[in-house]
């Protein structure tokens, strides 16, 4: 018998006479993280990102957002960038900005991407309660942009902010989980990379980006 058959047969035999946990019925789901009634989700998101050592820069409009992005790139002396295609960013003009600044846009294999000093991405959603960004991979949306470079700049509009992970899951269920068929990788990012391996002492900036900057753009009413 194949290992598969063996194992499944063994499991079926184990469960044949009685379930180990009778009465484990689906419970009413309660969300994990507290959000106060009437709480301002944008303010909460900003506070949570800051808590996990990320930075949020608020922009009243696209021009301001481009200025902030420009400042981030120049202050970090960025020469090369790996980025999502502009069609997937909530902000027009990033590519033109890079050209103006003489910053090279790198593509292709890991070795060339690894030379980039910054990654620029959008985000599908942002979770207010935990300060989390949800990014899905796809055409024009390389995973590496939020992973390899030391600086990660995420561009986000306020209308992408939803309360919690539970709300994200509910939305995906309503959409029949299409994202998990289309995207080989969905990543929930909460802050910049960190470790507590040395005496459980938190250190920020390990293998992933050392710094996370969110440029949060106001929506036009």
């Amino acid at each position: 018998m194949s290992a598969r058959e063996d194992i499944l047969t063994g499991l079926r035999a184990a469960l044949a006479h009685s379930k180990p946990f009778p009465g484990a019925e689906p419970a009413a789901f309660q969300a994990v993280t507290r959000i106060d009634p009437g709480e301002d989700l944008v303010a909460r998101f900003i506070a949570e990102v800051q808590r996990v050592k990320g930075e949020v820069h608020t922009a009243a409009n696209d021009d301001e957002a481009l200025d902030i992005t420009k400042d981030l790139l120049t202050s970090h002396h960025v020469r090369r960038v790996v980025m999502w295609d502009e069609a997937h960013l909530p902000l027009r003009g990033v590519w033109a900005l890079l050209e103006r600044l003489g910053i090279e846009r790198v593509y292709g294999d890991n070795a060339s991407v690894a030379a980039a000093e910054a990654g620029i991405t959008g985000a599908d959603w942002a979770l207010a309660a935990t300060g989390t960004l949800v990014l899905s991979s796809g055409p024009g949306r390389p995973r590496m942009a939020s992973l390899l470079p030391p600086l990660h700049i995420a561009l986000l509009t306020e209308d992408r902010i939803i309360p919690r992970l539970e709300d994200y899951v509910a939305a995906q269920r309503a959409a029949r989980f299409g994202v998990f068929r289309r995207s080989s990788n969905v990543t929930l990012i909460t802050g910049s990379s960190r470790t507590s391996d040395i005496e459980m002492h938190p250190v920020f900036g390990v293998h992933g980006p050392l710094a996370l900057h969110v440029v949060l753009i106001k929506n036009l009413d």
Binding site: R141, S183, G208
Partner: peptide, 19 residues
């Protein structure tokens, strides 16, 4: 509240994905 990265992997790179 959340670990920094929660990686959700559904199979290999799709044909249209860059990496």
């Amino acid at each position: 509240r959340m670990t920094v990265y929660n990686n959700l992997i559904s199979g290999p790179r799709r044909p249209d994905e860059p990496d």
